[in-house]
Amino acid sequence: MDIVLTIILDGLIYASWLFIVALGLTLVFGVLRILNFAHGGLYALGAYSAAVAVPFFASWGLPPAFSLIAMFIAALAVAIVIAPLIERGLLRLFYGRDEVLILLVTYAVFLILEDATKMVFGVDPYYVFEPRNLLGNVEVGSLFYVGYDLALIGLAIVCGLGVWLGLHRTRIGKVTVAVINEPEVSAAMGVNIARIYLLAFGLGVFLAALGGAFTSPLISVQPGISVSVIVVSFAVVIIGGLGSIPGAAIGALIVGLARSFAVYEAPEAEIFIIYLVMVIVLIFRPEGLFTPVQARKI
């Protein structure tokens, strides 16, 4: 029984931060119709920024709990600085162009971010242990888990509900949904499409950086973390369906539980099982599990 509970909890913890990252990826695709390959680099930038921000603010003599706020500030700073540079300075020049061309552009941005992080932060690993010590250990049945790890599940739920409610219960969200469904009609009615695109892309960047920032206490922040994240994030959104928030949640759960099961029962298949699940979904439902049915245009 303990092994089943362990697999479930480990799967949920892995799925939580992965969902936050995939949520930003699927949001950008849903609004801008762009497969943002640079998303992994933005995740890494968030992790590096948090790894620098936490000890920086700690040197001011602030309470240890402020490290959580420092990670949030680091992610927000990445979004405020980087999102306008990429979206306004580059991506807007390619709107309406071939999807493969835009994918190659975002891949080029990914490579630039990868080298830029090495130049700015160096190649030595960073370790951020302070936030993970804040919540102590939590007893779950006969098992003990780090409270911070379990808190990531709550953070993922807050992010998912926040984005969903923002899209469906606020005026700017309803305008964004209108832009998603009918961009030409929205523009004709006076909607500032460029501003909506910038806001959506900025939120996507923030979610990628937030996932990286709050994952930094769990990992060694070093060059290369962006590669594995973007590949697995693509698997999540492909399984769940591009542009679907519930799909990103279910996809993250499937990937997290599948990986956790493999870690304990077949460690050599830890990565393979994720792509096996993705292939199975693509065979039987190529559009993903939660992609809404599209009306055929004549």
Rank of each mutant, 00 (worst) to 15 (best):
E99W: 11
F234I: 12
L104S: 02
V279W: 04
S233H: 00
F144I: 10
V163F: 07
G24V: 04
Y145R: 07
G256E: 09
L101D: 00
A74K: 00
V236C: 12
V146E: 08
L23N: 08
R132L: 00
I20Y: 03
F272I: 13
R97N: 08
A187L: 14
P292I: 09
A38P: 07
A209E: 01
G212R: 06
G96D: 10
P183N: 13
L289N: 04
V293M: 14
P217E: 03
L203V: 13
V4C: 02
K118W: 06
I274L: 07
A258W: 00
I73C: 08
I13K: 02
V123G: 01
G212Y: 03
H39N: 14
A44P: 07
V185Q: 09
A70W: 01
V185M: 14
R171L: 15
A258G: 13
A235H: 01
V78W: 08
I219T: 12
Y148H: 09
G190E: 09
S186C: 00
V281R: 01
K297M: 04
L18I: 13
V140E: 12
S16C: 06
G243F: 03
Y43E: 06
V4L: 12
Y95N: 05
Y107H: 03
M189D: 01
W164K: 09
E270Y: 06
A58S: 15
V52E: 07
L91C: 06
L203W: 01
V277L: 15
W60V: 09
A208V: 06
A269V: 11
M71N: 05
P267V: 13
A269K: 10
G141L: 08
A252E: 09
A22T: 11
V221K: 00
L9T: 14
I8W: 06
V263P: 08
L111G: 03
F290M: 15
G247N: 07
G154C: 03
G160H: 00
I219F: 10
V163S: 02
A47D: 12
G61Y: 13
R88F: 11
V175D: 06
S216H: 05
I239Q: 06
V52F: 13
P267E: 07
M71Y: 08
F121R: 02
F201V: 01
L68E: 06
L150Q: 02
D10T: 14
D124S: 10
G173I: 11
N36A: 11
K174I: 14
I3W: 08
V138S: 07
V221L: 02
R97T: 07
A249P: 07
R259F: 14
V163Q: 02
V28R: 05
